[in-house]
């Protein structure tokens, strides 16, 4: 493990080898974070079962330091969106995301979370959780096999390896704004789009009125 974090090009006296490492802050920081990703214990649908499978003895993601599944968002680093996100559930998911402390990551597991999957055309399904919260890793499959989920988690580790303290958003000077929680109206409403919604439904009203008028003429 020490080989991973050692920076090459520094001579360490033979008697201190294996006891002293010369490295960068970024590397130590990322090394410790990548090996202790705590996912949130939170299954949405079918994929949740394969997520549990990935935790059981045959696949065992604790090999990657991820076995501590936390039911509370306050204690977790990774949200595995494991299943179909419905409009009724989305406000809760966004709220959970806002409650997670930085640094936080999102993994969209399976076709539904990534883009609606087989249920995309349905009236109460969100066609991809990335329309509302930022996603770091997408895993394909319906449901993804536990191996695919493990590959997704390893991909996330590689992503963490490349981050630098200088650039990460949680050390920037500006405060991180929470994502506005969607509202359930006649359909799902994103508070950032209220203007657009109003414009659209007014236009629709005008069209409705124009069509009969044209027919009469």
């Amino acid at each position: 493990m020490t080989d991973d974090i050692n920076s090459p090009g520094y001579d360490i006296p033979p008697e201190l080898e294996g006891q002293v490492s010369i490295t960068t802050l970024d590397k130590v920081y990322n090394w410790s974070r990548r090996n202790s990703i705590w996912p949130m214990m939170f299954g949405l649908a079918c994929c949740g079962i394969e997520m549990i499978c990935a935790a059981t003895s045959r696949f065992d993601f604790s090999r990657f330091g991820m076995e501590v599944m936390r039911p509370s968002p306050r204690q977790s680093d990774l949200m595995i969106v494991s299943g179909t996100v419905t409009k009724k559930m989305l406000p809760q998911i966004v709220r959970l995301y806002n409650q997670m402390p930085e640094p936080k990551y999102v993994l969209a597991m399976g076709a539904c979370a990534s883009g609606g999957g087989p249920f995309k055309e349905g009236y109460s399904v969100v066609d991809g959780v990335d329309k509302f919260i930022p996603v770091d890793v997408y895993v394909t499959g319906c449901p993804p096999t536990p191996q695919a989920l493990l590959h997704g988690l390893i991909t996330l580790q590689k992503k963490i390896d490349k981050q630098s303290i200088k650039e990460v958003r949680w050390y920037s000077k500006e405060p991180i704004e929470p994502i506005p929680v969607p509202v359930l109206g006649p359909d799902l409403m994103d508070p950032r789009e209220f203007g657009l919604i109003k414009q659209y439904s007014t236009e629709k009203l005008v069209e409705e009125q124009e069509v009969p008028a044209a027919e009469e003429a």
Partner: peptide, 13 residues
């Protein structure tokens, strides 16, 4: 909206 939503006419959010 480029996503799976639709609203009734004359709706004011």
């Amino acid at each position: 909206f480029n996503k799976n939503v639709d609203y009734p006419e004359g709706f004011d959010p």
